[in-house]
Each structure stands twice: as structure tokens, then as C-alpha cells.
Nucleic acid binder design. Structure first.
Length: 813
RNA sequence: GCCGAGGUGAUGAAACGGUAAACAUUCGCGACUCAAAAUCGCGUGGCGCAAGCCUUGUGGGUUCAAGUCCCACCCUCGGCACCA
């Protein structure tokens, strides 16, 4: 070995560093949330995982790392931080696994949560493990049930006979939100319509509050837009038309009564109660046949045939108040049951669907709006159908009015005449709350012959899920609980007569609708949480999760919290002050990770090969946080090299007071960028700022201690173990995670000189270095001193000189 | 169709209206090594020997200056959708 040869680099061994510090932090209670004490509170929330048998997904790691970075930064900033975790453990996959293997779902859940816990701990997330919750724990679901009885008592939970989306494979009723493109969200099989007695929850009652609440919170724009769209508030008018002869009336909903002079037909949904009732004897058979066929048609089939309008004439006519026109009444499946009144008035001239229907059945088309193109001719082609804007014609008192004004006038007129009344329609439907399944919270209701449905009293909660022999739903689609006769048989809480328990269980969304409330006081046996704890922590300051939960979990849990607020149980109406969302982590090639494609990355193997800090930092560096990014096993090497270099700086460089001022300034610059970028979730550029500094430091022989400490504190949220290791090696007292967060003011990072780009007519030709405080004249002189600049100016005088201090000077010729 | 987000190197990407391509990957060359790996150094948008010219989906516009702002169009992704 020659004397010049450098000593071998101290190897960066994450497998030794990481478990050591995890143990230290756990023993010292470093991440414990304090219910009171100094510092402002900050509640950081991530979506608690469903503990599936597949273990933790690298997608979880992305979201959790981001929020761990935020939580760690806030602690260093002096906040009192709550960053909890738990398990959303009821649900179908576990139940299906139990059906297949005969293993009790509780056992499966226990095994899976053990795996998840181990994995999460191996990644160094700073969760407060003392507050772990599990939705399947009777001590937890006792309160889920308690809340359901509050819904019932407030009249928001009701048993309704209704058509539901029925999955024939999972044999379970689905909420609208669980039907994707006419298919079951879980298993993908086509959904059928089936009539069933179900517990329903009146979320629609809260539609306006859920809309208005969006004004009071800070949600990502796209999240807010999706929520608004899902609630789908539309102001319109219900118009009631007399049916010719017989004294019946038909009521339609429309947002466009201005076009009513052009209404030429009425169409009913096949499920409309009038459909068969008003049919003339000649048409009755045809109507019945059509209704029967529509009934059996599967939801997806209807969607696929959307282009072809079908229907049948009832033989009856409705009378248009405005024109006295006899409007034939049809039954058609393009009219959706549950939208508006399940009946619509057809204006073929100004609604494309109505136009298609009119064409298929040879109905009259009347133009009552003239658009910007000035076309006043008869409407015979779809392109002529004017929907969005225009001026009224052939519309009596509305003639010449803009359609928006006309809409208002028409509503006023119809209300005055008593033909209709203004109303609001929503896309949001009531929440189907029953599942004919086993692995869920029993719905705490008892049915008594005399008293009807009675909620189980508080002192008898929880209604514990009984053991069963068979987890599979009955052939008739009843819950497995329906066969546990000695559990079902009970007495009426109200009159003590023999009574029977409800055998349906709650949907998976129930437990996750309020878990953020339980975290504030997870061990409370007297209440779901104490008033003090709720006041101390709520609302959640920052909640990050997947876009896929925007219209389901996010809306349900907001509704749930609004309700509890109205009941006086929680201090704020809106549970989440801020909501953000991460992009998916895809497999190589940009496709979704899946077992069948064999492209699933297991966090355990990355921790084993590169370490938790590398995995965490890579997932922050891989790309913009809100964007879907394919996994790149090459790029992760680069991040590992970066951390190895950081390790090398700590072990090989001389770290000493004083030293190169510019390296200190560079560290401040990096610290400021990291701090700012965390707030805007620009984690990728935060990491790159850390890389830039480490590249600089690698070139130096001596690293100023001030710069090194600042760097380690900025690195700490991303690579907590390595930062702690190097902090300790420096001989610092205490944890780097308890050190103050570097707050750097803009003025502190100014350099002594600055490079000014010199442009000739907007094209950059030269660069000059001037002192920071240089005046315009000085910069101009420096620029003109350059031969190159003079050459490009070709001897001519600039007409104009634009100077942007510290940036550019532009000579316009 | 509607709502939302985007289109920049070979790749993931960066860029208060102010030097396009930071950081990382890939690839190439070099150092170290018997050799390889690792590591380190240099280079890496296109054309050109060079001076220089061209380059942010397309076409216009505003501006001293446009990836960024405005208008029109094309394409991709996410959500919703016969919603009256």
C-alpha cells in the first residue's frame, strides 16, 4: 500500500445504524404526542392502512414518508405534534381469505397488522405507537356503533326498501361509490339491480353543509372540484303537468324551464310508479314488457347501449301549460330513476339526448333558442341543437331574452301560476350502510314486533361480533350472522318483549369515518374521546391520502364529523384543515403494480438491500409528489450513493469551526430551500438541494461545523437514522430530531458577488460578475467593458437598456 | 361530452415573466486495479472543425425578454358521465 493511498472509506451500513436508532427513539418516547404543554399543536394525519396479506406497499411509503417529513419538521420547529397510525381492518379481502382458508378473520387481521407494524417501524416513521387504533377492536367499534345509534336517533339512519347495486359474486349490496363503470369495484363483476331492505344514512341531508364547508378548508384544488362535482348541486324547478283524462299528474325536474315552449314529450323511468298506471289498454302490454326488460338489464349493459335510445309510448298525454300542446308520455331507460323525479320533459331542440329520442320516435322538434350562429332554421341535425347559450324565440313572453334571464323569468312565472316550485337536486345519494357480510361492525339495532326498530342502549355496547362456523353469506344473500340464532334472539331494550337483532354489518367506510377522533384519546373507556383531548388536537392540520378516496372516505368522514359537531360532540365542523394527495407509485414501464404482472416492489427487500433512509429519500426524490411515477431501481442507486457520500463526509472530512464561508452560505441556501419545499410538497427539489450541498462539501478538505450541523438538521426529516448517527458522531448532546429547525432568512444567504447575464436585444451573449450592491451604471459599465458585448453591439448605440437588479441587463438595439 | 392535471434531453425531471435542461439516471472517456466491481474525475439536448445557429406539443399574439401570460388547436393522464 502506497502512503498516498487514501484509507478505505468507512462503509455506510444502514442495517447497523437504523435498528439501533429506532430502538433508542422508542425507548426515549421521542415521538410521543403530548396532550398539553408548550408549543402550538400540530396534527399530521395519514390514511391508516388496510392490513392486507400482501404487506406494506411502496405507495404507502411515499405518503407516509412525506407526512413523516412534515411531522419531524414541525417537532423541530417546536410544535406539539400528533402523528398517529392504526388499522382499518374490517373488510372483504380478510373475510374472503377466511372463507377460503377457514382461519378466523381476527387471526388473519392480527397476523397482518403484526407484519404492517414491523414494516412501518423498520422505516423509521415517527408515529406515536402508544395511540395505535384498530377498527376491529370491540373497544373501538363500540363507539362506531354508538355513533350509529346517534344517527338513528337523529333520524338520519333509516331502513329503506330500495333498489340497490348488487354484486352477484361478492353477494353484497354496494354503494353507488363502489360501482365503477357498472361493475363491482372490488371484484370487477357486472353489478345487478336488486330490491333489498337496507340501512341507509341520510348524507344527502348534509349536502349543502358539505359544500359550504369546502370554503372553510384548504384542500388541493382538484380534490375540492371532485367533491363539488360528486355532491352535484343543481338548482331547478319541479313542474307538474296534468295527464290528459283520468286526473293524474306527472312531475318533472328541469334546470332549463326557459325552453319549455319547445317541450314536445315527457319520458318516465321504467321504475316510475306512473309508468304502468297511466298506460292505455292498447299500450299496457308493450309498456309492461319494456319495464320488465329494463328491470332485468344490468347496469353496465345500459351504459354500453347508451347511444341507442329505446322506449315505449304509454298512450297517455301530458298537457304543456305554456302551449297547451299534448305531449306524448313515453317510458324510456334513458330516464334514470333517482335523478330528479325520475321523469323528464323532452325539449328535443335544445338537449342532445332529447333530440336523439325525438328522432328515434319521430317526435316534433321545435326551435325556441337561437344561438350565436344566428341559425333560425328547423333543427334537423344534432349540430344544430343549441344547449349552452342563446336568445329565446317562439316563446311568448320570453322572446328576445337571453336564456339565463329567461330561465329565471320562466321559474317565476311557473311558480306564480302554481305549475311548479323551485327545488334543488343533488347527484349525491343516501349512503347504503348495510352489508350482508360477516367481517364488519354489527349494526346495533333490535327489531321488536311492538316497538319497531330500537337502538341498542349505550350500556349494552358493543354488540360484539359473534363467532360463526361459516363466514360465507347465505345463498339468499343474507349475512352469515343470520344463522346464529342464539345471538339474534334478544329482548327489546324498550319493552323487554322477545325481539331480534339486525344481522347486517356496517360497510368498511364506517370505522374510517371517525378514526382521527379516536387518536386524540385512544384509550378512553367513557367516551370516544374526551372533550379536552378533542379541543387540544382537532382539527387535523394536514391530512394526506390517495385521490381514490376523494369521493368516498373523504366525503363520508366529513359528513360524520359535521354530524357529531351538530350533536355537540366535536368542537369543529370540518375535520381536516388541509388535504393533499400523493401520486401513485407505479411499476417499471408506468403500469400499476400488481402480483399478476410480477412488478411489485416489496419495501422489506429495499430496506434490506439499501436501507430505510435510502427508500424514504428515494421516494421523495423520484418525482413531483402529486404525480404518478414509475419505480426506477437505477435511480434508487443514485440516492444511495448520495447518502453514502454524506456518510463519508461525516467520517472522512475534517469538520471544524470556521472554514469556508461559501460552504456555510451554501448550507443556509439549501436549508432554506428544503424548508420552503417541504411546505409546498416539492420534496424532490428539497432532496436535490441537499445533494447539491453534499457535492460541494465533497470537494472541500475541511467542512465548516456550522454548515455541517445545518445540513444534518435539514437532512433529518428525510433520512432520520443517518442524520442521527452523524449528529451523534459529532458529539452533540441530544437528538438531531430535537434540535431546532434551521430557519434561514432570505438576507442571510446573499453572496458577495452576483453574475449578471448580459443580453443584446434579448439574447444572452455574456455574463459579468459584479458586487452585490452594484448600481445600474456600474453593471452597464462592466458589461460594456466586455469585448464580446461590444462585438455583438457592432458599434451601434442601444435604444434602450433594461436592467433587472441581480439578474440581467439587456441592451436593446 | 363535462371537470381537473399535464405535454421540456435517451430517462425521472428542474426553472419569482429574466442565462432552458439544476439534481439524478443512462451512456462515453479517463484515474485507481493484474483484472473487474466499487469509488473518484471529465463529458453527455441537436447541427457544426469552429464562430455560431437551432431547441420546451402545434399555430398565432403580448413583451426589451415567454417553458412560464393571452387566443385557437392537437395529444396524454386522472375523475365523472344518457344527471334532465
Amino acid at each position: 500500500m502506497s502512503p498516498e493511498q487514501k484509507p478505505p472509506r468507512a462503509r455506510y451500513r444502514s442495517a447497523e445504524i437504523e435498528p439501533k436508532w429506532q430502538k433508542t427513539w422508542e425507548e426515549s418516547g421521542a415521538n410521543r404526542a403530548e396532550d398539553s404543554g408548550s408549543g402550538e399543536k400540530y396534527y399530521v394525519l395519514v390514511e391508516f392502512p388496510y392490513p392486507s396479506g400482501d404487506g406494506l406497499h411502496v405507495g404507502h411509503v411515499r405518503s407516509y414518508t412525506a407526512m413523516d417529513v412534515v411531522a419531524r419538521k414541525r417537532r423541530m420547529q417546536g410544535y406539539r405534534v400528533l402523528f398517529p397510525i392504526g388499522w382499518d381492518a374490517f373488510g372483504l379481502p380478510t373475510e374472503n381469505y377466511a372463507i377460503k382458508t377457514g382461519i378466523h378473520p381476527a387471526k388473519v387481521t392480527k397476523d397482518n397488522t403484526d407484519t404492517f407494524r414491523r414494516q412501518l417501524k423498520s422505516l423509521g416513521f415517527s408515529f406515536d405507537w402508544d395511540r395505535e387504533v384498530n377498527t376491529t377492536d370491540p373497544g373501538y367499534y363500540r363507539w362506531t356503533q354508538w355513533m350509529f345509534t346517534r344517527f338513528f336517533r337523529a333520524g338520519l339512519a333509516y331502513k329503506g326498501k330500495s333498489f340497490i347495486n348488487w354484486c352477484p359474486v361478492d353477494r353484497v349490496g354496494l354503494a353507488n361509490e363502489e360501482v365503477v363503470g357498472g361493475a363491482c369495484e372490488r371484484c370487477g363483476s357486472p353489478v345487478e339491480q336488486r330490491e333489498k331492505e337496507q340501512w341507509m344514512v341520510r348524507i344527502t341531508e348534509y349536502a349543502d353543509k358539505l359544500l359550504a364547508g369546502l370554503d372553510t378548508v384548504d384542500y388541493l384544488h382538484k380534490i375540492r372540484a371532485q367533491q363539488e362535482h360528486w355532491i352535484g348541486r343543481k338548482e331547478g324547478i319541479e313542474i307538474t303537468y296534468p295527464v290528459e283524462g283520468g286526473g293524474e299528474t306527472v312531475t318533472v325536474f328541469t334546470t332549463r324551464p326557459d325552453t319549455n315552449f319547445g317541450a314536445t314529450f315527457v319520458a318516465l323511468s321504467p321504475r316510475h310508479p306512473l309508468a304502468e298506471k297511466i298506460s292505455t289498454p292498447e299500450q299496457a302490454a308493450a309498456v309492461s314488457a319494456y319495464v320488465a326488460e329494463a328491470q332485468s338489464k344490468r347496469a353496465d349493459a345500459r351504459g354500453a347501449e347508451a347511444k341507442e335510445k329505446t322506449g315505449v309510448f304509454t298512450g297517455a298525454y301530458a298537457i304543456n301549460h305554456l302551449t297547451d300542446r299534448r305531449m306524448p308520455i313515453y317510458v324510456s331507460d334513458f330516464v334514470l330513476d333517482g335523478v330528479g323525479t325520475g321523469a323528464l320533459v323532452g325539449v328535443p331542440g335544445h338537449d342532445l339526448r332529447d333530440f336523439e329520442f325525438a328522432r328515434a320516435f319521430d317526435l316534433d322538434v321545435v326551435r325556441v333558442v337561437v344561438g350565436a350562429d344566428g341559425d333560425t332554421s328547423e333543427i334537423t341535425r344534432p349540430e344544430q341543437v343549441q344547449e349552452e347559450s342563446g336568445t329565446m324565440v317562439r316563446s311568448g313572453f320570453l322572446d328576445g331574452k337571453d336564456i339565463h334571464e329567461a330561465t329565471k323569468l320562466a321559474m317565476d312565472h311557473m311558480e306564480e301560476q302554481g305549475w311548479g316550485r323551485r327545488t334543488v337536486s343533488y347527484h349525491l345519494r343516501d349512503w347504503v350502510f348495510s352489508r350482508q357480510r360477516y367481517w364488519g361492525e354489527p349494526i346495533p339495532m333490535v327489531h321488536c314486533g311492538a316497538c319497531g326498530w330500537v337502538p341498542v342502549p349505550d350500556d349494552q355496547l358493543p354488540v360484539v361480533l359473534p363467532d360463526v362456523e361459516e363466514y360465507k353469506p347465505g345463498a339468499d344473500g343474507e349475512s352469515p350472522l343470520a344463522s346464529v340464532e342464539d345471538w339474534i334472539a334478544t329482548t327489546c331494550p324498550s319493552c323487554s318483549a322477545p325481539a331480534r337483532r339486525e344481522t347486517d354489518v356496517m360497510p368498511q367506510w364506517a370505522g374510517s369515518s371517525w378514526y382521527f377522533l379516536r387518536y386524540v384519546d385512544p384509550k378512553n373507556g367513557e367516551a370516544f374521546a374526551s372533550e379536552e383531548a378533542l379541543k387540544s388536537w382537532m382539527p387535523v392540520d394536514w391530512y394526506n391520502g390517495g385521490m381514490e378516496h376523494t369521493t368516498l372516505h373523504l366525503l363520508y368522514s366529513r359528513f360524520w364529523n359535521h354530524f357529531l359537531h351538530d350533536q355537540g360532540f366535536v368542537p369543529c365542523a370540518e375535520p381536516y384543515a388541509k388535504r393533499t394527495s400523493q401520486g401513485m407509485v407505479l411499476g417499471g414501464g408506468g403500469v400499476k403494480m400488481s402480483k399478476s404482472k410480477g412488478n411489485v416492489v416489496n419495501p422489506d427487500s429495499v430496506v434490506a438491500s439499501h436501507g430505510a433512509d435510502t427508500l424514504r429519500t428515494y421516494e421523495m426524490f423520484m418525482g413531483p409528489f402529486d404525480q404518478a411515477i414509475p419505480w426506477d431501481s437505477k435511480s434508487i442507486e443514485g440516492v444511495h450513493r448520495f447518502l453514502s457520500r454524506v456518510h463519508a463526509i461525516g467520517h472522512e472530512k475534517e469538520i471544524a469551526p470556521g472554514g469556508d464561508e461559501s460552504l456555510v452560505r451554501a448550507a443556509k441556501r439549501a436549508a432554506k430551500k428544503v424548508s420552503d419545499d417541504i411546505e409546498s410538497m416539492s420534496f424532490n427539489t428539497a432532496v436535490s438541494a441537499l445533494m447539491v450541498w453534499s457535492n460541494e462539501a465533497m470537494k472541500a478538505d475541511v467542512v465548516p461545523q456550522e454548515a455541517w450541523e445545518m445540513f444534518l438538521r435539514s437532512l433529518a426529516p428525510f433520512a432520520p437514522h443517518l442524520a442521527e448517527e452523524l449528529w451523534a458522531k459529532l458529539g452533540k448532546e441530544g437528538s438531531v430530531h430535537a434540535a431546532p429547525w434551521p430557519e434561514v432568512a432570505a438576507g442571510e444567504i446573499a453572496e458577495e458577488t452576483v453574475r449578471i447575464a448580459v443580453q443584446i436585444s434579448g439574447r444572452t451573449r455574456e455574463e459579468v460578475e459584479v458586487p452585490v450592491g452594484a448600481t445600474r451604471e456600474e453593471v452597464e459599465r462592466a458589461a460594456l467593458a466586455s469585448e464580446r458585448v461590444r462585438g455583438f453591439m457592432g458599434g451601434s448605440e442601444p435604444q434602450r437598456v433594461v436592467y433587472v437588479p441581480g439578474r440581467i441587463i439587456n441592451f436593446v438595439l
